[in-house]
């Protein structure tokens, strides 16, 4: 009896000693006994391919491919029209309402504020780590540029700024443009811009 208990205790100690407890940090992938269905030999999102030279399972459309509903001169499948068609626009081609501005605020705070700062003065958190001089939106030059120009800069980048076209979809880019315009107006506002009934506290300040 004693021996049985000792053997069992030993077994327990050995098992725990070898395989550890739940939640322990492990560098090795989980051990699977029957793995056939769990890890199926099929192409998955962003998977690795041994077949294609660039190692990607996800393929780009071959050169000259024309998406459904497009014409060969405007084949870009991602957008309704090619980005370059937007660059010349003077104003945002979407209805600018509260929903668009809220969307724009979210897009701006995600992608733009990192460098340009939450208020667009060019003092985002990246400047603390060596990002040099992101543009300040509150200058005469940037107040006077067209909406299409801002859209182009978001899409293609400019100077040290990288292209955000791959990250932000066209409607969200326009939303960001609308929010930048709102920031510019707020940064250059006069007391006359504030509705009469909301002025109270503001007028007391110097």
């Amino acid at each position: 009896m004693k021996y049985v208990l000792i053997i069992l205790a030993l077994l327990t100690v050995l098992t725990v000693g070898f395989v550890g407890l739940r939640g322990q940090t492990s560098r090795q992938p989980p051990v699977m006994v029957f793995n056939d269905l769990v890890d199926q030999p099929k192409y998955k999102n962003q998977g690795e391919s041994a077949f294609f030279a660039d190692g990607r399972q996800m393929r780009l459309p071959p050169a000259g491919a024309v998406a459904w509903g497009r014409t060969p001169d405007k084949p870009d499948p991602g957008n309704l029209i090619d980005d370059a068609d937007y660059y010349g626009l003077k104003v945002i081609p979407l209805p600018v309402d509260a929903a668009l501005l809220q969307r724009g605020q979210r897009v701006f705070n995600t992608y733009c504020a990192v460098c340009h700062g939450g208020f667009g003065t060019g003092n985002g958190v990246a400047t603390n780590y060596g990002m040099s001089a992101p543009a300040n939106y509150h200058t005469d030059r940037l107040r006077q540029v067209t909406d299409g120009y801002l859209y182009q800069v978001i899409t293609e980048g400019k100077g040290l700024m990288g292209a955000y076209g791959p990250s932000i979809k066209p409607p969200d880019r326009w939303a960001a443009v609308a929010y930048v315009r709102a920031l510019q107006r707020a940064g250059n506002a006069k007391i006359d811009d504030v509705p009469q009934n909301l002025r109270g506290e503001l007028e007391k300040q110097p």
Binding site: N45, Q46, A126, Y129, G130, M131, S132, L160, M161, G162, A163, Y164, P166, S167
Partner: peptide
């Protein structure tokens, strides 16, 4: 699918020719 970023996203800040952080 929650995508992993392509390297151009890293390069927005870490590109030696641009942000160079």
């Amino acid at each position: 699918h929650a995508n992993l970023p392509s390297p151009n996203v890293c390069m927005n800040c870490h590109d030696p020719a641009k942000g160079n952080i």
